[in-house]
Nucleic acid binder design. Structure first.
Lengths: 194, 194
DNA sequence: AATGCATGATACAGACCTGTCTCATCACAA
DNA sequence: TTGTGATGAGACAGGTCTGTATCATGCATT
């Protein structure tokens, strides 16, 4: 059975295969040979598209970061108030935790394996996390005065990071439920608005 | 300069050297050869004390988990009220984040590199995290009704996990400051009590 | 049909990995 | 003093790692 030559871009196919492996197996634990084997691609094809394994990792992270942003942008368009926007983000996390191939946060894991702040992978993680923090901050800026939005959005960010870790240990549903319970006291609104 | 033969147990020395390396470099990225070199120990000495690298990792995690418990036990004895106990835990995190060799949470990183729930390392992480969750839960049980203690302690746990991740990206101080700001609304007390 | 380029397949280099084995040495106890 | 067991030092096996090189093939456009 010959492999179907339908792939419009081998480059993108490699990125997506590597993403699945990094997520499930880890970065150091995933070898180049396995990436090219599951991509059905020659080794030189991979090295012609990416400068190195680290370069591929950065590209995978940027790809996922962009997908995340697009999804949240679409979600934000569906509702009007800050409270509802937070609610849709919590819905998104809940669905993510329930997805069968959930294995925790790709970015947090990258931080664990590439702890040097000067490493390109580390910087890619910082970019994504800061971008998400700013998104939460902008949402809450419309709901409360600036100093409260600062601490509330930071708290929300930390809650979501902690929930992702709990989800990896099998307590994702409970984690989101508890966040929903405490969010009203954080953003000063009755529970039913989110 | 000969290495001092003062070590009462080589086993413990290996555990502590491996701990420092795993924390700074990572689990897969740290080779056995480097552990024994920096331990000034023969390879067979290591393999006579530990069944395998994974076994050593589990031992390191258990060692650090126990140290953490002991430190928090001591802290808890110094103050009386739940609010103050939470305050001392936040103090502990603040000092941890400021320590010069802070590199994030050893257990969270282990979860990132050993994502299989059946793996001994994964189980060791689950044990430590659950133990800490129960500690927070017991503290808050003395301060509020059971259902609120459940969600508040879970939230506090998630906040601390998120703060640890932020600390690894250089925002630890700000993270703890923001937790202190939102904790009163979580546990229903004026800010000055913690 | 001819040409040029991306690709597949595979070998290869050099390094590193975990774990086992051997042997000389040293401390200590009987 | 003699024996016993832990240790240091290092070779070794078998495998895997990243990254490079080589060569044949297939596809598309000219």
């Amino acid at each position: 059975m010959p492999s179907p030559p339908v792939s419009p871009s081998k480059r993108q196919h490699i990125v997506e295969t590597a993403y699945a492996l990094f997520k499930r197996v880890g970065y150091h634990a995933t070898g180049i040979d396995r990436i090219i084997a599951e991509s059905n691609v020659a080794k030189m094809t991979m090295y012609r598209n990416f400068p190195s394994k680290d370069g591929l990792i950065v590209e995978v992270l940027e790809y996922r970061a962009q997908r995340f942003e697009v999804q949240l942008d679409r979600l934000a368009e569906t509702v009007a108030t800050p409270q509802l926007k937070i609610g849709t983000i919590l819905d998104w996390y809940e669905r993510w935790f329930q997805s069968p191939d959930f294995h925790g946060c790709l970015f947090a894991h990258a931080l664990a394996e590439f702890g040097d702040p000067g490493h390109p992978v580390f910087r890619a993680v910082g970019k994504q996390k800061n971008s998400f923090r700013q998104r939460l901050r902008r949402i809450l800026d419309d709901a409360m005065p600036g100093d409260r939005a600062e601490s509330a959005s930071a708290a929300l960010f930390m809650l979501l990071e902690g929930a992702t870790l709990l989800a990896q240990m099998g307590h994702g549903e409970e984690a989101v439920r508890n966040i929903r319970k405490v969010v009203p006291s954080l953003i000063g609104m009755p529970a039913k608005t989110q």
